[in-house]
Simulated scan of single mutants.
Amino acid sequence: MSVTVEIAGLPPERIVFTPSPLGELGTALHALSEPGHHPAVHGWTTATNAALKPDLADRLCDADFLWRTTFADIFMGFAGLRDPAAQPGATLADDLDTLDRLPDEDFVAAALEFTCVSTYGKAAPSPLADPQMRERAMDLAAARGQRQMDFTNWLLTDPTAVREWIRRLFEDCDQAFFADTWRRTRVHLAADARHKTELLRHKGLAAALESVSQALTLDEHGTRIEVDKMADGRTTAVDPAVGVGLTLVPTTFNWPHLTVLHRPGWRPVLHYPVASGDLPGHSSVEALTLRMEALSHPLRMRLCRSVARAPYTTGELAGILGLTAPEVSRHLSVLKKAGLLTTRRRGRYVQHQLDLSIVAKLGSDFLETVLR
C-alpha cells in the first residue's frame, strides 16, 4: 500500500519546503483533541487544554471533526487555488486570507472530508452543489451525533457564515495559545525547511526525501514519489490545469502522522513531522505485515517461546516441540524472513534466537504504522 505522487517533468524550483502557520495550528488542534497519539508533546497538550476558556473549548468541540479523525484539507487551502505561486504565508493571518480565496464549493468539500472516506482521491462533486453528496454528508454526520449533524447542516446551508465563524475560531485560538506556540516553533520549522532545501539543491530529491522520512522513496527514474502508508492513492504535481508544484510542510506536532494531500484538483502537499531523536523510528508496512503474519501461527509462537529464552539449533527445537527438523526449519525460515530471529554458528551447529529488541518494538511499530 502507498500513496503515489507523480513528478515526471517537475522543475526542481517547484518543489518547496516551507512551514505553514495554519497547518501547524491544525496539527496543534489535532494533538489537543487526540493527546494519546502524540506522547512527545504530552506536556504541551495537558497545559494548553487545562488553560482553555470554556467558551473556546466548547467551540473547538463543535468543529473538531475538521482535525480529530482526519486532517481536513482546508488547513492547506493554498493548494486548492488555481495559482501555482500560492504557498503558506508568514503569519496565520496570511494563511487565513489565502483560505478566504478558496471557492465555497472547494471549501465545503474539503471541510467535510469525513464524508468522502471512500471517495477521497477520486473526482467527486461538492456536497454544496450535488444533492446526492449533500444527502450522504448529512447521513454520515447524523451517525456521528447531533452536534456534528447540526454543524454540517449549517455549513451546507450558509457556508459564508460558517467560514466567518471558523476564521474567528482560529483567530481566537491564536490569541489564546497559538501565537506563543508559533513564536517558539517557527524558528525550528524554518531551519528544517532551509536544511532540506539545501539538500534538495546540492544532493538531489532522493536525499531530501530521505531526510524527511524513511517512508518516502523516489523511484529509480525520478518520476514518482512513493509514500509508505496503509492506504492507496495517487496524485500528480504536474497537472497544468491545477498548477505545477509540490509543497512539503514541516510540523512539530504531527508525529507519528505523515499526511499526504492528494485531493483531485489540488496540488499535492506532504505534511511531515520534524525528526526527533527520542521518537521511535519508521517501520515499513511490508515489514510490519510480515512480522504480524509470522507471529499469527501457533507453532511459531511456541518456537518463539523457546528461542526467547536461549539459542537453540533446529534439531533441539524439533525435540522440544515434537516436530520433524524440516517442519521446524520451515517455521524458522518464516520468522527469519520477518526479521524476528538472529542466527549464529557454533562450529558445525547453527543456533537461532529471538531478536528481543525487534519484538519489543512491535507495539510501537504497529501504532506508528496505522497512525502514519
Rank of each mutant, 00 (worst) to 15 (best):
A50H: 11
A50I: 01
A51Q: 10
A51I: 01
K53I: 01
K53W: 03
P54F: 01
P54R: 01
D55V: 02
D55W: 01
D55Y: 00
L56G: 02
L56R: 00
A57M: 02
A57W: 07
D58L: 01
D58R: 00
D58M: 00
R59D: 00
R59Q: 04
L60I: 00
C61E: 14
C61M: 08
C61P: 02
D62F: 00
D62M: 00
A63I: 03
A63M: 03
D64N: 11
L66F: 07
W67E: 01
R68M: 07
R68Y: 11
R68N: 08
R68T: 09
T70K: 11
T70E: 06
T70A: 08
F71L: 12
F71Y: 14
F71W: 05
A72K: 07
D73R: 15
D73Q: 14
I74G: 06
I74P: 13
F75L: 10
M76I: 13
M76V: 15
G77F: 02
G77K: 04
F78Y: 15
A79V: 10
A79F: 10
A79G: 06
L81Q: 06
D83R: 14
D83I: 08
P84A: 14
A85S: 14
A85T: 14
A86P: 07
A86D: 03
Q87I: 12
Q87N: 11
P88D: 08
G89Q: 04
T91D: 03
T91E: 05
T91H: 11
T91G: 04
L92A: 04
L92C: 09
D94T: 05
D94G: 09
L96W: 08
L96M: 07
L96K: 04
D97I: 13
D97N: 05
D97W: 03
T98I: 15
T98H: 09
T98E: 06
L99P: 07
L99W: 13
L99Y: 02
D100E: 13
D100F: 09
R101P: 14
R101S: 15
R101V: 05
L102W: 09
L102S: 14
L102R: 14
L102H: 15
P103W: 14
E105M: 03
F107L: 13
F107E: 02
V108R: 06
V108N: 08
A109F: 12
A109H: 13
A109Q: 13
E113G: 11
F114A: 02
F114W: 04
F114N: 02
F114H: 02
F114R: 01
T115R: 07
T115S: 15
C116H: 04
S118E: 12
S118C: 03
S118Y: 03
T119I: 04
